[in-house]
Design a protein around this nucleic acid. Structure first.
Lengths: 123, 123
DNA sequence: CAGGATCCGGTTAGATACTG
DNA sequence: CAGTATCTAACCGGATCCTG
């Protein structure tokens, strides 16, 4: 008697394509990490800011983390770093136009997060 | 002579409110982790699936990680877990309606991620 | 089939101290 | 002011083995 053949599970690939996963993952990776969201939002609202100004606006972040996160964002062309020739030197960090486009997604995350919190915490 | 008073930096708080940060962070936390996005998308496209079916659909994931991620999502009311009384037992995992609402954000992440990739990789 | 238990290497993030 | 260097504790994710 023939074995009952179990067909391999293959879903409609349209929504499971590899590069679709990658695109979403890229976005998540950029936004992941403890301070990225706050940092982006702070620069979005605050415009151009200096290193210490940012540190004061984000309570709890240390210089090491702040420097690292700023590097990451700069490498992704999301912020620009400008050394001003003042004395002592100051550095101006600012979201690029591309960086500002992230705020749309962040706002959606806020909206969903609020709904989610009500759902999980129960009203 | 009076010192030049540096005003403390206080930005319009509307976009920097603590609970706004938290809401966005909740969303990120749910979507962070190596397999969450793929897992949600797989269940979104595939409907109800068994443990092993999911494992086959997500190449590389091990049973430990899969179990953990499923637990996380269930704790957040994003998926439902149903034990079927078959022999041997099988378990059916399925996105809840609330879970399906995540796909909107995920799709936006994909769209942004594609744009971003073109921007960084240069064309 | 559906997982839990254990071990283990790599990454992450904080504290502290120091430099140009 | 604007960071870097170093050390360490915590966490993440994988491999392997085991159970009901």
């Amino acid at each position: 008697m023939a074995m009952k053949r179990k067909e391999p599970i293959v879903l409609d690939t349209a929504c499971l394509r590899e590069d679709e996963h990658i695109a979403a993952r890229d976005t998540i990776d950029i936004l992941s990490g403890k301070w990225k969201l706050q940092l982006i939002t702070t620069l979005h609202c605050g415009g151009a800011l200096q290193f210490m100004e940012i540190q004061r606006l984000i309570p709890g972040i240390g210089p090491k983390m702040l420097a690292r996160e700023l590097h990451d964002l700069e490498a992704n062309l999301l912020i620009s770093r400008t050394v001003m020739d003042t004395r002592p030197v100051t550095v101006r960090y600012e979201l690029t136009p591309h960086g500002h486009t992230l705020q749309g997604i962040i706002n959606e995350m806020r909206a969903w997060g609020r709904i989610h919190r009500r759902m999980v915490m129960g009203r």
